[in-house]
Amino acid sequence: MAEAEGESLESWLNKATNPSNRQEDWEYIIGFCDQINKELEGPQIAVRLLAHKIHSPQEWEAVQALMVLEACMKNCGRRFHNEVGKFRFLNELIKVVSPKYLGDRVSEKVKTKVIELLYSWTLALPEESKIKDAYHMLKRQGIVHSDPPIPMDWTLIPSPPPRPKNP
C-alpha cells in the first residue's frame, strides 16, 4: 500500500484510536501491528503509546486503544507479550481500574475491558507470571470480585515470535 510508506507507530495508533472513527478500523489496527513487527524496538515503543491512549478521558479512544492492544497480543508474538508482561506496562492498566489512581474517573466499560484482558492473558500466557501477580493483586484489593466471563473468540492463541526485519 503506497500511502502507508513512512507511517510511524504513533501515526498508525492515532488513526486506529481516532475518536471520530465510527467503528474500529482494522486497516489501521493491523497497520500498527505490522509496524511493531518491522521495528527493532517496536514493542517497547508501542506499549508506551498504548498506555497513553488507554488513559484517554475519551471513552471511545480508550476502548479503541484496548482493541488495538488485544490485536497486538494476537499478532505481534512473544516480543510484544514480554513488554506487556512487565509491571511497567501492567501498572498503567492497574491505574485505570484502581480508585486510588484513575479508577473513579474511568467508565465502567473501559474498566471491564481492562479486567477481561488481564484475566484472558492469565489463562493464555501462564509463563508471563507478572500478569498473574497483577491480576491477583487486583483481586486481593477487592477491585476484581470474580473472574469475568471471557467470550470464546477472545481466546488468545499466541503466534510464533516474529523476526524483526533489518532496516
Binding site: K86, F87, R88, L90, N91, I94, K95, S98, K100, Y101, K130, D133, A134, M137, Q141
Partner: peptide, 15 residues
Amino acid sequence: LGEESEERDDHLLPM
C-alpha cells in the same frame, strides 16, 4: 546485565 537491572527496577504499583 541490562536485563537484570531492568528486572530489579520493575515493580508492581503500590496500592
